[in-house]
Every structure is written in C-alpha cells, then in structure tokens.
Design a protein around this nucleic acid. Structure first.
Lengths: 171, 171
DNA sequence: TCGGATCCTTCCGTCAACGTCAATTTCTGC
DNA sequence: GCAGAAATTGACGTTGACGGAAGGATCCGA
C-alpha cells in the first residue's frame, strides 16, 4: 500500500484531504492562514506530513466552521490556544516545566469552555427557530383542516388588513 | 411622523433595513436574486413598498441563513414556495378557487416541514459537537487535577506514540 | 409647488474562501 | 537509481454576498 508514508503513520496532504472530505488546496490554505500549524520545522519544498491527530483537528475545524458559522479568522482565534499546545507538544513529554503544563492545560480548558458556550448559544437560537417553524406548520395544518371541513370559503386568517394595492395602476 | 408611508402601513426599504438590522443594499440584493419578491408590479423607478409581513420574511430569511448556514440560492429554493404563495396572496381573498387554496396550503406545509427537518438535523449535529467538546473539557480537567495532586510528572495520556520527529534535522 | 430626504438604477469594488494552472521538486516502489 | 505519482510554490481566477458612489428620480410635508 502506498497510503501511509513508509508505515510511519504519517499522512500526506492528499490523504488528509480525502479522509476529511476536502481538497489539498484547502488544507494548505488553512495552514497558510495559521489555522493548521505544520508541526516542527518543515524545510521549504518538502512534503507536509500529518498525523491522525491532525486529521481530527481538520475535522473539528470544519465542524466548527459549519455548525457555528464562524469565519476562519474567528476560528483561528478560537483554536489558537490549542495550536500553541500542539506546537509545544513535542516539548511536553520532555522537559516542559510543570508550571508550563498547568498554564497550557488551563488555556486549553478555557478554549473548550468558550466553544461549549458558543454551542449552547447556537442550540438556543435553533430551539427558538424550531418553535417558530413548528407553530407556522401547525397554523397551516389548521387552515387546511378548516378548508376541508367547511364548504364555504373560510376566512384565511392571514392577510388580515385588505389594504389597497400598493402600486396604483396607470390604466 | 415620516416613517409609515402616508399611514398606509407600508414601509420603505430603509425602514425595513433598520427594523431587520441590515442595509437597504442587502434588501435590494435579496430581491434581485429572487429571495424577496416585490409584490405586485412595481413600475421602474418607483420606491419599493413593504408590509410588516415582509419584514418578518426578511427576518426569517436571515435566521435561516445564519442558523442553517444555507446559501441564498438554497434559501431561494427553500422558500420559493412561500414566495409563490405571497405572489398569489392578492388573489386569495378574492377569486381563488378552493382547490387552488388547498394546493397552495399543501405546498406551504411541505415547505415548513422541510425547514423543520433541516432544523432537527442541525440540532442533532450540534448535540454531537456538544458531547465531543464536553468530553474534551472533562479530559482536560482530569489532567489538571492529576497535575495538582501528584508531584511527579504524570503521563500526559495524550501523544501516546512517541514517533520519531517527522522532519530529520540536517545538522 | 418646492425643497430636502430618501430612493432608484447602474456599475464597479471588495473580501473571504478557496479553485486552477504551470513549472518544478520530492517521494516511493521497483 | 529511476520513472511516475503526488506534492510544492507562486500566481492569478472565481464565486457569493454584499459595499459604495454617481447621477438622477420620487415622495412627503409645508
């Protein structure tokens, strides 16, 4: 198989794109604007390499983009913290100070909390929308029933004020 | 007062824009692409007139746009039916056949149902996202607690496989 | 009837989020 | 060590959703 790069578990941009349902261009663009950080120092010209964790991150970015309707710039701000974390991950297992670890974790926690807040907000708005649409549907159903039972033309209950035509005819 | 046009209850584009928190340009643009139908035949050059119902429609369009993340084109398709209804509304109170009324109502019903379906879908996706973010937050909290209790450097539980550095140094 | 506020149409500009093309380079399997 | 597939950089193109300005018309109140 030619997918996993030399069986090291690293993926290339095309494979990441495929797994996330997007295109290589998009992946590179996200890196270009700082949403995805190429880990480590990538010498210019060398192929980008990604881990399975990176794939997850791309998926998360896309979900947040779609479901919360955030711009990529807003998203950068929102997940910036995590980007830092990722950037420092290599140093984590090694020499990272406990204080630094705590600081990073606290930042990540705040990040997650903010996201959760946004999600909750969205859910509330959606709930309102649901209620409204549901009400409209019910109103329509009622009118349909009225139309079916009574023979005479029932009052439509909508378009209540028969104002004059907005634009007078010039005949 | 100069707001309501000659006390007929009709509003002009600027007032609609203000009430919906957008701009006249946007309102006109929406009409341009067929999202908002100017009711009746508006002679070229004459000011656009809107009703309170139109304002509601604009609000609805904007909510659907924001909350469902639909393009204006998709929105046109979604509310097209209602546009037709609006277009035919003048004829409703008058000579509209009962069969036509039923047909129109049925179409409106389908429209509302589709919208509801989309809303439900969104809600489900958001619920999944919520669960995931919540889980992540909890994981972070747990790690923070572990960091606080134990003195020795606890295993980070993330970044499990210490693979080699992706890009070999050329020193 | 007239003045000023608002609106109309037309056209060009913009910004985000990529698409696309081309010339070149890197990897990888053999 | 080499061919072919996939990737890289750089540049420009595109599409959706409006913003903005110009030049003129409309509308409403006085």
């Amino acid at each position: 198989m030619a997918t996993a790069v030399a069986a090291t578990g690293h993926l290339r941009v095309g494979e990441v794109a495929e797994q996330t349902g997007t295109t290589p261009r998009t992946i590179r663009y996200y890196e270009e604007i700082g949403l995805l950080a190429a880990h480590g120092q990538r010498p210019k010209g060398v192929h980008r390499l990604y881990t399975a964790e990176d794939v997850e991150r791309v998926r998360e970015v896309m979900r947040l983009r779609d479901l919360l309707g955030l711009s990529l710039e807003q998203l950068s701000a929102l997940v910036e913290v995590e980007s830092v974390r990722r950037h420092l991950k290599d140093e984590w297992a090694g020499a990272t100070d406990v204080t630094d670890q705590r600081r990073i974790l606290a930042a990540a926690l705040q990040c997650a909390s903010t996201q959760l807040e946004l999600v909750r907000e969205r859910q509330e708005q959606l709930a309102q929308l649901e209620a409204q649409v549901r009400a409209r549907r019910q109103s329509i159903e009622r009118r349909l029933r009225e139309l079916s039972s009574r023979r005479p033309a029932s009052p439509p209950a909508l378009a209540p004020q028969p104002r004059g035509a907005p634009y007078p005819q010039t005949t």
